[in-house]
């Protein structure tokens, strides 16, 4: 018999991330910085949506964007060109951002003078949904060409979002099998409380509603009236 002993640990691995996320939320609340976790598939229009959002908020909201990608810095360059503070995080091959990586990025960024930070998560509908990043609101972009069946295929993503932006509505006449009523119904099947906005980052259609929600959220957050989202692991 070997000369060894057993240490009982009984710790959930996800619990570690949940604790990191809670800590980051606390710090950001003290700083007065509202963090949004923006998720979507690759190519759904996260960066284009952000560029238009930056332009719409430029006069009243001090905004920063954290770009998370496996490699490259094209997104950060595009955001800086649009007029917001940007930082690029490389996940080094990982498919999602966890709370600790988000916190490191935020600390490097320095959020004291920012009202709003948007974390542009890795383009992926699976893994980013599983990890609480410490954001106060999770927003997902679903673009019309991806199809209206996505809420059926990626349940957790839709469950963990408080808002879905249905983007690229300008191409609805071409993708005429995409049914707006059906997609809304399917999103609410996964998450009855989820808000849905139809918009186009290209034409600006529907943007007023999205900007209005952002402004309301920032105000609620700054007044301490916002409750953190419930995070589902499965």
């Amino acid at each position: 018999m070997g000369d060894y002993r057993i240490i009982e640990v009984k710790q959930s691995v996800f619990a570690d991330n949940n604790a990191d996320a809670a800590l980051l939320r606390e710090e950001l609340t003290a700083d007065g910085t509202f963090l949004i976790n923006l998720m979507s598939s690759p190519g759904a229009g996260k960066t284009t949506t952000l560029k238009r959002t930056i332009a719409a908020l430029a006069d009243t909201v001090r905004m920063g964007v954290m770009e998370a990608d496996i490699d490259g810095e094209v997104d950060a360059a595009a955001i800086e060109a649009a007029g917001a503070k940007a930082i690029q995080i490389h996940t080094g091959g990982m498919c999602h951002l966890d709370a600790d990586m988000t916190r490191q990025g935020i600390r490097e960024f320095g959020t004291k003078d920012l009202d709003l930070v948007v974390l542009e998560n890795v383009g992926n509908l699976v893994c980013p949904a599983e990890f609480d990043t410490g954001a106060m609101r999770n927003v997902m972009i679903l673009s019309v060409p991806e199809g209206d069946d996505k809420p059926l295929k990626y349940p957790l993503m839709f469950r963990n979002c408080q808002l879905v932006l249905v983007n690229k509505c300008d191409v609805l006449p071409v993708f005429d099998d995409f049914d707006c009523a059906r997609v809304e119904e399917r999103i609410h099947f996964r998450n009855p409380d989820c808000k849905v906005i139809f918009l186009s980052a290209k034409t600006g259609e529907g943007f007023d509603e999205w900007i209005e929600i952002l402004r309301t959220w920032i105000t609620e957050f700054k007044q301490g009236q916002m409750t953190p989202p419930v995070h589902y692991d499965i």
Binding site: G2, Y4, I6, I7, K10, Q11, S12, V13, F14
Partner: peptide, 16 residues
């Protein structure tokens, strides 16, 4: 609803 099956737990360590 799920009763169990989504666990990911570090149960114990065998150490010297």
């Amino acid at each position: 609803y799920l009763l169990c099956g989504n666990e990911f737990i570090i149960k114990e360590l065998e150490v010297e």
